[in-house]
Nucleic acid binder design. Structure first.
Lengths: 220, 220
DNA sequence: AAATAAATTTAGACAAATCTAAAAAATATA
DNA sequence: TATATTTTTTAGATTTGTCTAAATTTATTT
């Protein structure tokens, strides 16, 4: 099946959104894609017709296996090109996204195979995001517990060890969720508690036992 | 000024056609682009509005200086990518054209500057065609068509005039590519066909119409 | 020069992707 | 529960790039 650049952008956006919630909603896609809800609805009908989306009107939607597979293909291309732009052409990592957005729609499987070989089959892109392999398998990252993270390194929350209501409630209060960017600004050796800085929020203190349950990884 | 991929394809087509005739005509563009004359007319109006084309209805048309400059920019991108595909990714030179057709529309000047540096500022692409520099200057190489080459002079193939799949397939069969060393051993005046000797291969016969499309140069 | 042929343009239609404004459905609130 | 709000969808318009078929202009032939 062939997809236009526009369709591919929607597929990618839906894929990313459904990583953090069971069903995706129209406004969320419209917001991330800087388009309007009506345009999203139009595209949903098209993607449903192409059988890569589970969708019933007013009920939310998500990619099916076919759709996820295609999304991973696009993400693979995007991240391989980002790797190329930084490692081979010498771009700064914060300049590459819009160029990779264009390159990811070039449709030649052989091109991607050869590019991947040429780059040495890299597992992570310059933002630290994993590059899916040709079958859509995603390498998983060395993640570490927040209580052993060195000071001042900016990291992203990748998982939470304890998912009790109490823990989740507290994390919500601290504005911490999967993907939240944060860094440790101080470590108190008295009790192992940490002062942390969550992006856009004032510093706060968390206990060692909470920190032990927050897993993070480097980069974006 | 920004141009869509479609507009760029027309610009490129018109540029190539006006290399061999003063004014370009609608049907010629339609034929090379596999589209219809009416579509060409529509686009001519648009390109005239964008002030890169001299055009009066029923009278033929050609790119003005602005238009030629833009055409050379697209050709530069196309040929740099072709060089990349062959020299870095290891593609066969007869497989790269459709991929470069897509890559040439990626619009980042910095990307092309960095790609050019990375490739070592090459002057000719893998088909032997000159790569315009960032100001649109085209490097020249004294080359001549094989059908007027004197007998027994050893030369190198520098370009191929007709890049159709059929032509490229035939050249492959004869073991002829860019850089191939060869000489003309006989010329039959009956039909203008030639016997040629390709380095390391047995002599073979090619027709005048094929020879006309093979351009060669002396030494390196 | 008139008739014929070829090239070019216009008129009108269509598909893709988007939009605005209004209607409909779902959700939240008083 | 009735009302208000938010979310989602529909209806209809717009832009870009394309097409066919018919009309127009130019070129070619008798």
């Amino acid at each position: 099946m062939n997809f236009s650049s526009s369709e591919e952008n929607y597929i990618k956006s839906i894929y990313h959104l459904q990583q953090s919630c069971e069903l995706v909603n129209t406004n969320a896609v419209a917001a991330t894609m800087h388009t309007r809800a009506a345009s999203v609805t139009d595209m949903l009908k098209k993607l449903k017709r192409k059988k890569i989306l589970q969708y019933e009107r007013y009920k939310g939607f998500k990619l099916n296996e076919q759709g996820k597979k295609h999304a991973l293909g696009i993400i693979r291309k995007h991240r391989l090109w980002e790797y190329f732009l930084v490692e081979k052409l010498g771009f700064a990592w914060d300049k590459i996204h819009p160029i990779a957005e264009e390159l990811e729609h070039i449709c030649s499987d052989e091109l991607i195979t050869k590019l991947n070989d040429y780059l040495g089959n890299p597992a992570f892109d310059p933002h630290g995001d994993p590059i899916p392999d040709q079958h859509g398998r995603i390498p998983n990252r060395k993640q570490l517990s927040l209580n052993i993270l060195p000071l001042k390194q900016t990291v992203k929350v990748s998982a939470v060890g304890n998912q009790s209501t109490q823990m989740l409630e507290m994390l919500k209060h601290y504005h911490i969720g999967i993907g939240t960017q944060l860094s440790v600004t101080k470590r108190f050796s008295f009790d192992g508690s940490l002062e942390i800085k969550v992006l856009k929020f004032p510093n706060c203190i968390i206990s060692a036992s909470v920190a032990k349950n927050i897993f993070v990884h480097h980069d974006k």
